[in-house]
Each structure stands twice: as structure tokens, then as C-alpha cells.
Design a protein around this nucleic acid. Structure first.
Lengths: 148, 148
DNA sequence: ACTAAATAGATTGATATCAATAGAAATGAT
DNA sequence: ATCATTTCTATTGATATCAATCTATTTAGT
């Protein structure tokens, strides 16, 4: 006569302990906070650092491949570019060879900001690398890649 | 006479290939999309599923420990509860033993929604588990935990 | 050339995320 | 008991995230 819709507490514990999605989201939030804190003096968030770093290429890339590289929705990329454009660190120009598309360029100021952030990234990354058992960083990257 | 603020392309490639923060953010976005898609028929996002599952306890927990469990900011938790309260799946009551605090409860409807989502979680999780090399899921969880 | 389909981005609306700040209640020192 | 400190949460403002939908442009089939 019960509703039969109660999930046992043991199931809850199992999901909490095993869910890879939850584990990754948790680590993502923690790492984002860590890098955001470290990069704050440089005026960048972790996401802005990754995005701007991915724009540091010989040829300015269109939006699609950048969004794919970062595994983010194209609309997210459009939104993420706005503050960087406002600050004058990134310019978005029409692609002359495909007028539907845009090309993303780091400005000299953007490159300068990125260069100032780089040593912060290095030291922060070295720090978390040390928190992992020896050699597991590479393995971790491979496992994460398999999920993307 | 140059500005000396150019980062070599090789450095960009190194950061892109090694940055654990970027790798985790990327996997987090990809997994979030995957679980969001799968759970959509149940009316839940991956985050809502994790949050509601963490509320399925014998005793309703206060907000602080739940936020810590999910490694999220307390203000994020406050915001995340809003839509769940609106839908009548979670209730937030004053803690009689500490009137600063709140206790978070799943409603019967919330439990029912969660129960319907559970088999979706199971099959989706089994799917991504298969994408990982044998036995690496447990290792991955441990590595991610070390970062949180 | 013409038209249908595919592709590249932009916009809107909802939720997620956190810093900074503020308020209320409990705790501790005296 | 009083007051300073700490703890727990909410609010505001900015950015991040994606689904749904739209426009503009290119490509492919005819």
C-alpha cells in the first residue's frame, strides 16, 4: 500500500560515491575557484585564460573550432567573448572568405594580459600537479579526454 | 625594441595539452550535456539530480554541509534550490535548533521525480563507464577527489 | 541559375557560478 | 548579562552555461 517511490539511503550513498558526473563537476568547481583566485591579480578568470590562450595562434580561428576545442556551446562562446571585447583584449572580425563566420583575434593588450597571467598559471598548475600521485596527471588527462 | 610580450605558439600548445583545469572544465561541460540530455525526460538537470539525491537522507541536512558535499558556493546552493522549491520538489524550513540555519527536505513529489530519474542515471552512467579503460573509473574518482 | 539543405553565429530566456556584501542568530570572552 | 566575534544564509551584480529559435550565408542537387 506504499507509494513505492522511496529510494533507499544506501542507493543515495552509492550514487554520491560513484557518479563520475558529480565527481567531475565537483572537481571543476574546485579547480575553477583555485585558478580564479590565483589569476585574479591578472584580471582573468580560468575560463578567460583558457579562451584567450586558445586564440594565441599564427592565424585567427573562427568560432566553431574554438568552441569545439573548449567543449563549449557556441552560444556560450559568443557570450564569453563579450567582456573580453569590452576590455579590448579580443577583437571579432568578419571572415572575408566566409561572411557567415567570424575570426577571433587577440589584441596586443590581450597578449600582454595573457603573458602576465602565464607565470601564475605555471605556478598554480605545478601546485595542483604536486597534489596528485606521481605520474597520475597524464593518466587523468587521458581519462578526462575519453569523457569529452 | 619589441614589447616582449608575445607568448610563443608552442607555449599555447603546451598549456592547452597539459592544463588540468581546462581538461576538467571540458569534461565537466561534456558530461553535463550528456546527463542533461538523458535526464531531460525526467525533468531534471544533472546538477538538480545530484542535489536532490544528496537530500535523500534520513535526517534533513542544513545547507552548509550540502554545499560542501557538492563543492559549491553556498550562494550557488541558495540559487539552485529556487527552481526546485517552485516545482514543489524541495522544501526549505527553519532549523528549530539553530534559527540562522535551514533544513532541506525532499517532498514526496521530489522523491518520486528522483526515483524516475534513477534508472536513467544508471544506464547513462554505465554507458560512460564503458568508455573508460577497465578499472580506470575508480582511479579517476580518486584523482578527482584529490583535486577537490 | 535556382532552390533546398547545411552551416556559422546571434539572441532570448532560464539556470549556474561566485565575489562582495549584509543581516540575523549563536558563541565566547569578560 | 554584554559585547565582539563567528557562523549561517540571502541578496545583488557579473559572468557562464545551454536549449530553442532565428538570420545570413554557403554549398549541393537539379
Amino acid at each position: 500500500m506504499s507509494n513505492s517511490i522511496e529510494i533507499p539511503f544506501s542507493t543515495t550513498l552509492m550514487v554520491r560515491d560513484t557518479c563520475l558526473c558529480l565527481h567531475v563537476q565537483r572537481a571543476a568547481r574546485a579547480l575553477a575557484r583555485l585558478f580564479d583566485d590565483a589569476l585574479r591579480p591578472a584580471g582573468l578568470t580560468n575560463g578567460q585564460f583558457s579562451l584567450m590562450m586558445s586564440l594565441n595562434r599564427p592565424e585567427p580561428p573562427p568560432m566553431g573550432p574554438v568552441a569545439a576545442l573548449l567543449a563549449m556551446d557556441q552560444t556560450t562562446l559568443t557570450a564569453a567573448l563579450k567582456p573580453l571585447q569590452r576590455k579590448g583584449w579580443v577583437t571579432v572580425m568578419e571572415n572575408p572568405r566566409d561572411r557567415r563566420g567570424r575570426l577571433l583575434c587577440l589584441t596586443p593588450e590581450g597578449k600582454s594580459v595573457l603573458a602576465k597571467a602565464l607565470p601564475i598559471w605555471k605556478s598554480t598548475h605545478a601546485m595542483i600537479d604536486d597534489k596528485l600521485p606521481d605520474g597520475s596527471a597524464e593518466r587523468l588527462r587521458q581519462d578526462l579526454q575519453a569523457l569529452s
